[in-house]
Simulated assay, not measured.
Amino acid sequence: MIGTRVFDMVVNGVSLMDTYQEYHVIVEDREAMHLADLVSIRSDLEGASAACGLFEEEAREDSADTAKLRVFFESAVISYARAFASGKGSGAGRQRSKIENLLGSLDPEQRLAHDDVLSIRNRHVGHRVDPTEQSVMVLATFDRQSLKFKGVAPFLVDRIDGGLMAGLASCVGSLAYLVDLEISRVMDQLAKFYELQESEGRILPEALLHVNPRGPEAD
């Protein structure tokens, strides 16, 4: 257990440590950093869920704003895909924890939505390489009677898949629940481990080595 730093947050001028009469020490061992990664992944899923909700609300409008739908669509795709992206994890020299092991709990429709979203993220939202998702056609217009040229107009074709968003929302709900269970499991595991360390006299973090347990008035 690494605990070289004491963490305190001041809310409305009052220290949280003073409020609860306890020390908050930042721990950065491997198990704690895995928990931090899970919480970060849960935040990504929350972002995707919020974007799906906003998309659904806008889509129900009589005159839905296409620009808003695209923003919500892309935001949901990016947030969701980030939960499965590789990269730096919490702590020094760590890769971010993965949750691919949870995908086996999805039903076939949810798994299809998952695969489609990651494909769209890689081939459209993150990189413009898929013309089936968005393309621009330049149209030359001609008069139907004289067949004389009238002008040029660009035409944007942007596929915004409401069905996929519904599948994504379902997928996010299931995965968020599973990640919450994993977070609870790891928290319980850490608590039991630290309790065992304390009973064996090995838990006191470096940050508290010079703290008088009787309080500053005893110094």
Rank of each mutant, 00 (worst) to 15 (best):
G126A: 01
L175M: 03
D65T: 05
A48F: 06
A83S: 01
S174V: 11
S199R: 15
T19V: 10
R82F: 02
S75A: 14
E195W: 15
L209N: 14
V138C: 15
A218P: 06
V25F: 06
K88I: 14
M1K: 10
K150G: 13
E195F: 09
M17P: 06
M17T: 05
D107C: 12
Y177F: 13
G89L: 12
E109K: 08
D130F: 00
L118S: 05
T66R: 07
Q134I: 06
K68T: 04
L181I: 13
V125P: 05
A76T: 09
G47M: 00
R70C: 01
E206I: 13
F73I: 07
V27S: 07
R70Q: 03
G93S: 11
N122K: 11
L118C: 02
L175E: 06
M1L: 13
S170K: 03
V11E: 06
A81D: 08
L175S: 01
G162F: 03
V211W: 05
R30T: 08
L118E: 09
M1R: 10
I2V: 14
I99P: 00
A50S: 13
N212E: 15
E28M: 14
L106H: 01
G151N: 04
V71W: 07
L175V: 00
L35R: 06
Y194M: 15
A176H: 01
S199I: 13
E56W: 02
A50H: 06
C171G: 07
E206F: 15
E31L: 08
V71G: 01
E46G: 14
I2T: 11
M33Y: 11
L164N: 00
I26D: 14
K88F: 10
E109L: 10
A191Y: 07
A140H: 15
F72E: 05
G104V: 11
M165A: 04
Q21V: 09
E74N: 10
D18R: 03
E56V: 07
T132W: 06
S199P: 01
G3D: 02
P205S: 04
S49H: 08
E133F: 14
E57K: 07
A50F: 10
L16W: 05
V129A: 09
S90N: 04
L69I: 00
R121G: 01
S90G: 01
A67S: 13
R5S: 14
V138Q: 14
V125W: 02
D219C: 15
L208T: 00
A81S: 07
V27G: 08
D8L: 06
P216Y: 05
S79N: 10
Q134V: 06
L190S: 03
V25R: 12
E57R: 08
K192Y: 12
S174E: 04
S199Q: 13
A176D: 03
R111F: 15
A176K: 13
V14R: 15
Q95K: 09
D37S: 10
S146A: 04
S199T: 14
L178G: 08
A76F: 03
M1N: 11
G53M: 15
D62L: 13
M1D: 12
S63W: 05
D62F: 09
M137F: 07
H114Y: 07
P205Q: 03
F193C: 08
G3R: 00
R42I: 03
N12E: 11
